[in-house]
Simulated scan of single mutants.
Amino acid sequence: MTLLFTNAGNKVGFLPREVAESIPFSTDKVQEILAPFAIDPESANAEVVKDTINDCENPPRAREVKYCATSLESLVDQNVARLGTNIRVLSTPEGKKQEYTVLAGAKKIGDDRVIVCHKEIDDTEVYTVPLMGADGTKLKAVTICHKDTSGWDPDYIAFQILKIKPGPPFCHFLYSDALV
């Protein structure tokens, strides 16, 4: 299959905790959030901020524990609180767009407790899947398998792409800037 392993376009890093805690984080305070970053309230970036905050304020999906980290420290604190101190952080290395072949040796990582993109979802497994590019490049793609999607929104984009309804399991590769 032809794949492009790149980042999702998130060029922004985490704010230090003391800075993050000084900025309100709610949909009714969007203007106060945009101002320190000089984000035009009518811009596409402002829409991303609004959508992110709105997503954080929405209730979690079935069997999901939702936590929106505002700093690297808060992300680490939450992960240690949920998973303990024996933690591995994984990501997919960047790779150019080309044909990739899945090689033997997919490996399940850890137990069924994972935190992905600030989401901890029951019945989720993490794998590394070895791939070989047409140019001979090898990489291990981090892959997430959602074993039970029965409580998910039927309009979720993955169901539309796969032409399935909630319920059956599905797996997907992660962007290079996604952390597991």
Score class of each variant (00 low, 15 high):
P16C: 06
R17K: 15
R17F: 11
E18C: 12
E18D: 15
V19L: 11
V19T: 14
A20L: 08
A20Q: 09
A20E: 05
A20T: 14
A20H: 05
A20N: 10
E21Q: 15
E21K: 11
S22W: 04
S22N: 09
I23Q: 02
I23M: 05
I23S: 01
I23P: 10
I23L: 05
I23A: 02
P24L: 06
P24Y: 05
P24E: 03
P24F: 05
F25S: 05
F25R: 06
F25K: 01
F25A: 05
F25M: 06
S26N: 09
S26A: 13
S26V: 01
S26T: 10
T27M: 09
T27F: 00
T27D: 06
D28C: 01
D28L: 00
D28T: 07
K29V: 00
K29A: 10
K29T: 10
K29R: 13
Q31C: 00
Q31A: 13
Q31L: 11
E32K: 08
E32Q: 14
E32Y: 00
I33Q: 03
I33Y: 04
L34S: 01
A35C: 00
A35Y: 03
A35E: 09
P36A: 00
F37N: 02
F37C: 03
F37I: 01
I39S: 04
D40Q: 01
D40K: 02
D40G: 02
P41Q: 00
E42G: 08
E42S: 12
E42F: 08
E42K: 15
E42V: 05
S43Q: 03
A44T: 14
A44C: 00
A44S: 11
N45W: 08
A46G: 05
E47V: 11
V48G: 06
V48F: 06
V48P: 04
V48Y: 05
K50N: 07
K50R: 15
K50V: 15
K50Q: 10
K50D: 03
D51H: 12
T52S: 13
I53T: 10
I53G: 04
I53S: 06
I53D: 01
I53Y: 02
I53M: 04
N54G: 15
N54E: 15
D55L: 14
D55A: 15
D55G: 13
D55R: 13
D55F: 12
C56D: 08
C56Y: 03
E57W: 04
E57D: 07
N58P: 00
N58V: 09
N58L: 15
N58Q: 15
P59W: 01
P59G: 13
P59E: 08
P60T: 06
P60V: 02
R61A: 13
R61W: 14
R61Q: 13
R61M: 12
R61H: 10
A62F: 12
R63T: 11
E64D: 12
E64V: 10
E64P: 07
V65S: 14
V65W: 05
V65T: 15
V65P: 02
K66N: 03
Y67H: 11
Y67S: 02
C68F: 01
C68I: 04
C68T: 06
C68R: 03
A69Y: 01
A69G: 11
A69K: 02
T70H: 07
T70M: 09
T70N: 11
T70A: 03
S71A: 04
S71F: 02
L72D: 04
L72H: 10
L72Y: 13
L72S: 07
E73N: 08
E73S: 12
E73V: 10
L75C: 07
L75N: 13
L75M: 12
